[in-house]
Simulated assay, not measured.
Amino acid sequence: MKRLSMLLVVPLLALVACGGGSSGDGAASAAPSDAANLKYNKCLRENGANMPDDPKDIPQGGVEIPDKAVNACKGLVPPGQTIDMKDPAVRERFARFGKCMRENGFDMPDDAPPDIHLKDPAKWEKASKVCSPILQEGRK
């Protein structure tokens, strides 16, 4: 089984602008990535993973994703959602992000739990504005 650690996904979700634009009538339209995320999460659930649609509902420690679900849903992974923590450059970037967050007032251990951003949302927001460029380095 694979463990999806939201420590990896949550900072990106919090730092990357998401949501839709205006449809012209003042109503917000759904971003394509929202639909892709919902489709992917539904596939994971249908194949044995207890994956909620809302990232805020992911339990501390992440979600166990059976190999069956990984294989069945790999073609549905939304762009930008896969992060290879075995890659030394990625690990180094996340270590620098954690250090930057601490230097900017958010107490974030290197092995932070997935819901770390909920600890103090105001401090997270302030520090992540400074530190978010670190996570964007090397991304296409």
Results as ranks from 00 to 15, higher is better:
131 C>F: 10
120 D>L: 08
137 E>C: 05
59 P>W: 00
59 P>K: 10
32 P>W: 07
14 A>F: 11
136 Q>R: 11
16 V>Y: 07
120 D>A: 13
104 N>S: 08
13 L>H: 07
17 A>P: 03
54 D>R: 10
51 M>S: 04
73 C>H: 02
139 R>M: 15
60 Q>C: 04
28 A>Y: 00
62 G>R: 00
92 E>A: 15
10 V>I: 13
21 G>M: 02
46 E>T: 03
91 R>S: 14
122 A>Y: 04
126 K>P: 01
98 G>D: 15
123 K>F: 02
120 D>E: 14
21 G>T: 08
118 L>E: 15
73 C>G: 06
99 K>R: 10
64 E>P: 00
7 L>F: 11
102 R>D: 13
118 L>I: 13
3 R>K: 12
14 A>C: 09
44 L>T: 06
99 K>N: 05
28 A>D: 01
21 G>S: 12
48 G>N: 08
7 L>G: 13
29 S>L: 07
7 L>Y: 11
71 N>W: 05
35 A>G: 04
129 K>D: 14
71 N>G: 14
12 L>Y: 11
17 A>Q: 06
101 M>L: 04
36 A>S: 13
74 K>L: 07
40 Y>I: 01
96 R>N: 12
23 S>P: 02
98 G>M: 02
130 V>N: 11
21 G>H: 00
81 Q>E: 11
99 K>H: 07
37 N>R: 10
58 I>K: 03
53 D>G: 15
79 P>K: 15
105 G>R: 06
107 D>Y: 04
58 I>T: 10
22 S>N: 13
94 F>S: 04
69 A>G: 05
132 S>F: 01
4 L>C: 09
81 Q>F: 15
135 L>M: 06
53 D>S: 14
27 A>S: 09
68 K>V: 10
25 D>S: 12
138 G>P: 00
104 N>Q: 09
37 N>Y: 04
63 V>Q: 02
121 P>H: 02
88 P>Q: 03
6 M>I: 05
129 K>A: 15
48 G>D: 06
11 P>A: 12
99 K>M: 08
75 G>N: 13
50 N>I: 05
113 P>N: 13
65 I>P: 01
123 K>E: 07
11 P>W: 00
109 P>F: 02
123 K>P: 01
44 L>R: 07
11 P>G: 13
7 L>I: 02
105 G>N: 05
111 D>E: 11
94 F>R: 05
52 P>H: 09
8 L>D: 14
15 L>E: 14
46 E>Y: 03
99 K>I: 04
70 V>S: 12
74 K>M: 13
82 T>C: 08
73 C>F: 05
112 A>I: 10
55 P>F: 14
137 E>V: 02
6 M>R: 09
32 P>S: 07
119 K>H: 15
134 I>R: 01
135 L>S: 03
75 G>Q: 06
43 C>V: 06
139 R>G: 11
35 A>W: 03
51 M>H: 01
95 A>D: 10
97 F>P: 01
126 K>F: 08
72 A>I: 05
137 E>N: 05
89 A>S: 14
31 A>N: 01
97 F>E: 07
128 S>W: 03
34 D>E: 14
25 D>R: 12
80 G>E: 07
67 D>M: 07
117 H>P: 02
77 V>N: 04
49 A>M: 12
92 E>Y: 10
101 M>N: 09
28 A>L: 06
56 K>G: 08
77 V>A: 13
5 S>A: 14
45 R>T: 08
76 L>V: 04
54 D>V: 09
66 P>F: 04
132 S>A: 15
60 Q>N: 05
91 R>E: 13
